[in-house]
Nucleic acid binder design. Structure first.
Length: 941
RNA sequence: GCGGAUGUGGUGAAAUUGGUAGACACGCUAGACUUAGGAUCUAGUGCCGAGAGGUAUGCGGGUUCGAGUCCCUCCAUCCGCACCA
């Protein structure tokens, strides 16, 4: 029989499903191993060839571990809340649940076709009420908790309340960045609302004002990705920065633990470095600069604060270089700094306000990428240098960010390049406080200079000066040494429909939790999935009777962000059907954390940080026995796609062809690759593609065609460059596609998608099949022992595959199999002793074929997946002779086959007596002869 | 600007601790078999050279008997980003 993959694969898929081959239960007699994939968002485009890359690798590894005797948990599910389904709902009116259901069905079908060994009885979906009930429950847990800075633990808020009742805010053990001060008497006299206002400063889930990209025309908030040059990607409407009341998560409290935890997990240094960079620990000092009271000629000294009267405020700055404080020549505030309005003098008002307005039109991303344009405005006010008593100007500039540090910096042009550029641009003084440095062209930013012109810091090296400066700052009550993290609290509200509702209602604008017995709060029906006319979230459209629970004046209308459900899903797989707990204690105790986690590096700082945060909180509160969710993590490289672009003339619905786009001000827009053939756009197809393009007009090439641009970039639904695996499974079979994706290159490396090489892998599998069907496609296995060469091939293969799997080098496994099959074909080997172990060996890679061959060889169906991994025997690998390469000055000249038994001395004697050697010696005597037994001979002339 | 990664044939890549650079494939060339073939088989294939040989892992240095691998300088490309004071 020819290798009929269609028949074989269908047969075994059916068998596995009917026999629940991959279902697992807790088994105390076996060691556990948890292999997890980052679960997919079920997009309308279906799985693309990049998804399975990681799934195939994890599946091979899970199957390998199973054969090694582990009880392997290998589940799959769907991150099924998300924007695309909602956008589709807005366009078509179809409920996102229906869209999602359809997409999941499609995904499931695609996943099944790839032959994965998932235990589908454990499937989770974040959008299922059974699941999000527990997401809501965890939210409640975090709302009812604070971070205790004494015990360094997540702690129930009741303990903090008890503290306030007894001691007021004195010695408050809770982490916060807010200001607070009250006595026990104050606290006990507070109204419920006042108490809540204080508690919000400590709860891990809390309400606060956050900056968002607000698009007034669409009445909605946009992600940074959805904004380009201050305009929305969809529709090209202006977008501005706006403060909105939002739920946030106090992840900052965990900054230090998130940093420390990296030391105990097995992630790549690159990934750890990215997280460290994101957490961004920096040490320095906060320093207060008193404000000048505005009376010219009056000598205000910094220690005379109280006498400054009503304006006795000071501006607090954070600096990592307190040693450079004598180099300060002005202060710069973020344009959004809360005091800007008060500090602005009448004369500067107009300019400041227009600058604030223009800054509000820039996203943070725009602000950071624009380093060339230096901008800022003088407020008209001054602060007093706390050490010199000098007046320094207070400016605003958009290079200072409101969200980092205190939103204000002390500008030291000689020591910071941005301050230097700012000073240059506005002709401010650049005072050199570093001994023997040249700062005529750029700032001196190294921390190795000797400080000068700096009073008590003179003569100190920078590192010591930092300590000395902090001492002095603290002594004079100007501030203190401080560790700052750039990590920001995570905004947890979305003004969307398709997400988890909050278990929260409002009474008198007081947020109150819904009791557990009413969970889940289900998503109510709405007439449209858009924000309301006055910009409220879609849930505000709901009627009271559309909710399964209501209380108070109104329910919370925001929904949770995508990362809510994905921050704990790996726990739900352990106990997916439990309706009493999010996970039972005995189950989480057995399975523990994820041993191997595979997914894309785009989650390096988002999902992976949030999941670690929630895990730590759940650990502290005693629900789970581990603090780090993912022990070993591999980022699979991206499979890159080829995207196509059309070019929209800004503020219009007119599209210009690639070769004429430079004559216009255009925005490139991704267009679906199915509408593009050989870079030519299908114009009618494009108009029918999305309603907003129905009335599109075009500026075409001379020949009347529209040429698209292209780029090789990440394959993603939003880039419309998705290639699905279905076609390839159909043509070559899942086993071939599995092995081909592994063969492409190292798992972690990104590579452009290309199907050219797949025939090679398909040919290999057929050749493998032919080993078992040597004559007229009849299955045969010969008895009798394998000969020396055959056994050496087998055992070398066993050894290499195992070693390669242990280092996750899947691509070289495939090569090793190819070499084995080439050798055995050459040897015309058909012996059971040699070939049967190979079936087990290849089972993790090509499970369908393995099952078929195993059955033919007399095994029980499905048994090959629970069999034992072949052991290799070193004795078969011993070679009797070695091909020694003989090098002269490191250059290989010829080889000589010598017995492996020879000692280094004997090898040297033999080689030196050879004619070939004499030829290359050219009559000279060698200076040195290096023999590495079993490896090489190098003769130095 | 900051952070991370990567540079090896026409292409994807291999070389686990410094020890024969280019395994294994794709592609290409020539041939065999074929009505046909994205089938199969044989031979060849880094570059220069008729050959002997020379040369070659982004560039330039260094360490070493020996460097793709270790160190330094530079260059290019890709990814991420919150100008992080």
């Amino acid at each position: 029989m020819e290798y009929n993959f269609r028949e074989i694969e269908q047969k075994w898929r059916k068998f596995w499903a009917e026999n629940q081959t991959y279902k697992v239960e807790e088994d105390p007699n076996k060691p556990k191993y948890y292999v997890l994939d980052m679960f997919p968002y079920p997009s309308g485009a279906g799985l693309h060839v990049g998804h399975p890359l990681g799934y195939i690798a994890s599946d091979i590894y899970a199957r390998y571990k199973r054969l090694e005797g582990f009880n392997v948990l290998h589940p799959m599910g769907y991150d099924s809340f998300g924007l695309p389904a909602e956008q589709y709902a807005i366009q078509t009116g179809q409920h996102p649940a229906i869209t999602t259901e359809q997409n999941i069905a499609r995904y499931r079908d695609q996943l099944d076709k790839m032959g994965f060994s998932f235990d589908w009885s454990r499937e989770v979906r974040t959008s299922s009420p059974d699941y999000y009930k527990w997401t809501q429950w965890i939210f409640k847990l975090l709302f009812n908790a604070y971070y205790d800075t004494v015990s360094h633990k997540t702690t129930a808020i009741d303990q903090l309340i008890a503290h306030f009742e007894q001691h007021g805010s004195a010695n408050c053990p809770a982490f916060t960045e807010e200001e607070f001060s009250f006595t026990a008497e104050n606290w006990n006299a507070f109204s419920k609302k006042e108490k809540e206002q204080e508690l919000q400063k400590f709860r891990l889930a809390y309400l606060a004002d956050s900056w968002v990209n607000w698009c007034p025309a669409m009445g909605t908030v946009l992600a940074n990705d959805e904004v380009v040059n201050g305009l929305s990607v969809r529709g090209g409407h202006p977008v501005e920065q706006k403060l909105m009341r939002q739920w946030s998560m106090r992840i900052k409290a965990y900054a230090e633990r998130l940093l420390q935890g990296l030391d105990v997990i097995d992630w790549t240094d690159a990934l750890k470095e990215q997280q460290r960079n994101w957490i961004g620990k920096s040490q320095g000092a906060s320093v207060s600069f008193p404000l000048w009271n505005g009376i010219e000629g009056e000598d205000v000294t910094p220690l005379d604060l109280p006498s400054m009267g009503e304006n006795s405020k000071s501006i607090e700055v954070f600096t990592t270089r307190p040693d450079t404080i004598f180099g300060v020549t002005f202060l710069v505030l973020a344009p959004e700094h809360e005091w800007v309005a008060q500090l602005t003098t009448e004369a500067q008002k107009e300019e400041i306000e227009s600058y604030q307005k223009s800054a509000s039109l820039k996203t943070e991303r725009d602000r950071q990428s624009d380093v060339k344009n230096i901008s800022g405005v003088f407020t008209g006010s001054y602060a007093i240098h706390p050490f010199t008593g000098e007046k320094v100007e207070i400016w605003i500039g958009d290079y200072v960010l409101a969200g980092y540090g205190t939103g204000a910096v002390m500008a030291v042009p000689c020591g910071d390049q941005r301050d230097f550029d700012f000073a240059r641009h506005f002709n401010k003084e650049i005072r050199n406080i570093f001994k023997d440095t040249d700062i005529s062209n750029e700032a001196y930013t190294e921390k190795d200079a000797i400080i000068a012109n700096s009073d008590f810091l003179n003569g100190l090296p920078a590192k010591e000066a930092i300590k000395r400066a902090i001492e002095e700052i603290e002594k004079r009550g100007l501030g203190s040494g401080k560790t700052n993290y750039r990590l920001r609290d995570a905004v947890f509200s979305r003004q969307r429909y398709w997400g988890e509702p909050f278990p929260v209602y409002y009474e008198n604008e007081l947020p109150t939790l819904v009791e557990d017995e009413h969970l889940p709060i289900q998503l109510p029906e709405v007439d449209k999935y858009l924000p309301t006319e006055d910009g409220e979230p879609p849930l505000a459209r709901s009627k009271k009777e559309d909710w399964n629970f209501t209380r108070g004046d109104r329910m919370e209308y925001n929904t949770m962000p995508g990362w809510a459900g994905s921050s704990w899903y790996f726990l739900r797989y352990l106990d997916p059907k439990n309706d009493q707990e999010f996970v039972a204690k005995d189950k989480v105790d057995y399975w523990g954390n994820v041993d191997l986690y595979i997914g894309g590096s785009e989650h390096a700082t988002g999902h992976l940080l949030y999941a670690r945060f929630w895990t730590k909180a759940l650990y502290d509160l005693g629900y789970i026995p581990f603090e780090e969710p993912f022990q070993k993590l591999i980022n699979q490289g991206m499979i890159l796609g080829r995207s196509s672009f059309v070019y929209r003339i800004q503020q219009s619905n007119e599209f210009v062809t690639f070769n004429k786009k430079n004559d216009y001000n255009v925005t490139p827009i991704h267009v679906d690759i199915s509408l593009v053939d050989n870079n030519k756009l299908d114009l009618e197809g494009f108009k029918n593609w999305m309603p907003e393009y129905a009335s599109a007009t075009f500026i075409l090439e001379e020949d009347g065609s529209y040429t698209c641009g292209y780029e090789v970039e990440k394959m993603s639904k939003s880039k419309f460059n998705v290639q699905t695996p279905d076609e390839l499974v159909e043509k070559f079979g899942a086993d071939t596609l599995r092995m081909y994706e592994m063969f492409l290159g190292p798992l972690e490396q990104s590579k452009p998608w290309d199907t050219k090489g797949i025939t090679g892998v398909n040919g290999f599998l057929r050749k493998f099949w032919r080993l078992f069907h040597p004559i007229e496609n009849q299955f045969t296995l010969a008895d009798g022992p394998g000969n020396e060469k055959e056994m050496r091939t087998l055992h070398r293969t066993i050894k290499r595959i195992r070693e390669d799997l242990d280092r996750y080098s899947f691509n070289t496994c495939i090569s090793t199999f190819m070499i084995a099959v080439n050798e055995l074909t050459e040897l015309k080997c058909n012996k059971r002793e040699v070939l049967q172990p190979l079936i087990v060996l290849i089972a993790p890679f090509a499970p369908h074929m393995a099952d078929e061959l195993w059955e033919k060889a007399g095994g029980k169906p499905g048994e090959v997946h629970t069999s034992t991994y072949p052991q290799f025997n070193e004795s078969y690998l011993v070679e009797s002779s070695i091909d020694y390469p003989v090098s002269f000055n490191g250059k290989m000249r010829f080889k000589v086959n010598l017995s492996a038994q020879l000692s280094a001395k004997e090898v040297e004697e033999h080689v030196m007596n050879m004619e070939e050697t004499q030829k290359w010696l050219e009559g000279k005597a060698p200076k040195k002869v290096i023999i590495v037994p079993g490896k090489i001979v190098n003769i130095v002339l």
